[in-house]
């Protein structure tokens, strides 16, 4: 198991390096350049700016210097918001996104697993059809439809929750639901398919033949195995949710980190972009690794990698 985990860890680190380098190269190669908003710069001025932002010289040196700084924990200053360090900007917005994303993650994972397991246990009966049609519909609608609809129903008509803002726990509920809906639907579909497969397996037939009550068969025997594919999806799920969503943030007026992903590209703010991508990728890699560890603990068969 140790060897499996070490090799996984190394390959994940490699992915991290490649993705960040690729993003930097893409940002540098995209036409226009980071200074094209400032009008009428002469060649010499552009050169001076490049030196100022450490973007002069050959591309591989630029990437190298960024990595040097990043590994020391210095993500440089934002190229658009003067005098703001990238770390500072992300440091203010990430806690908000983490709180919101964390709640959404719990909702999506627990709701999805419960709905999927229920659907599989009642395969092809009405709870199954209802849950799966609902899940498919949730996947077919963008969050900027479900969000305003939630606002219209639960905030404006019933007045249970505030329309937007970010001051009390009540402000978390609607955006978290909105964020969780499509992911929860995906988890539910994954869970149902896997559960249906597991419920047809021999060891379940044995359990039933022993005369175990159906509830025990499902909760004690089937669920533990069927949840494995969902567990492997939880890594990307958490990374996606914790870094925020620009759509949900703009609908509910939340000062999260999702906006920086999009705005940094539109503003050609390369260092902010690199910082945001670095956060996303480190989260993704760390969570994927965590998932691998959990997987090893849940599924003893992976021990064969030790041979």
């Amino acid at each position: 198991m140790a060897r499996f985990l070490v090799s996984r860890f190394l390959s994940l680190l490699a992915v991290l390096g490649v993705v960040l380098t690729l993003t930097f190269v893409l940002f540098r190669l995209s036409p226009g350049g980071p200074f094209s908003f400032e009008r009428d710069l002469s060649e010499a001025q552009v050169r001076a700016k490049e030196v100022q932002y450490k973007l002069d010289g050959p591309l591989y040196l630029q990437v190298g210097r960024w990595w040097q700084d990043a590994l020391r924990g210095d993500f440089r200053e934002s190229m658009k918001s003067r005098n703001f360090a990238v770390a500072e900007i992300l440091g203010q917005s990430l806690p908000v996104s983490f709180a919101l994303g964390g709640v959404a993650f719990v909702l999506a994972a627990s709701g999805g697993i419960a709905a999927g397991a229920l659907a599989a246990a009642r395969q092809n009966r009405w709870p199954d059809r209802l849950a799966m049609t609902g899940a498919l519909l949730a996947i077919s609608l963008p969050t900027f439809v479900t969000g305003p609809l939630l606002v219209l129903g639960l905030a404006l008509h019933l007045g249970w929750f505030p329309v937007g803002g970010w001051t009390s726990w009540k402000h978390v509920v609607l955006p978290a639901i909105c964020l969780a809906i499509p992911y929860g639907a995906y988890v539910a579909r994954l869970m149902r398919n896997s559960m249906v497969e597991v419920l047809g397996a021999d060891f379940i037939r044995t359990a039933r033949a022993k005369g175990l009550p159906e509830r025990q068969v499902i909760f004690k025997h089937a669920l533990k195995v069927a949840v494995l594919p969902v567990v492997s999806y939880l890594g990307p799920l958490a990374a996606g949710l914790l870094t925020g969503s620009v759509v949900v943030e703009s609908i509910f007026g939340i000062p999260g980190a999702g906006q920086h992903f999009v705005n940094s590209i539109l503003n050609k703010d390369g260092f902010l972009l690199m910082g945001a991508v670095a956060v996303y990728c480190v989260l993704l890699v760390a969570l994927n690794f965590l998932v691998d560890v959990v997987y090893c603990l849940l599924d003893r068969r992976i021990k064969m990698y030790d041979v």
Binding site: V19, G32, F261, V285
Partner: peptide
């Protein structure tokens, strides 16, 4: 394919669009 999967797709498409619109 693995590396591209790890790249946030949203970023990739935004970079592409902003890169292609001018040219």
């Amino acid at each position: 394919v693995d590396v591209l999967y790890a790249n946030p797709r949203v970023l990739f498409v935004l970079i592409l669009i902003s890169a292609l619109t001018g040219p």
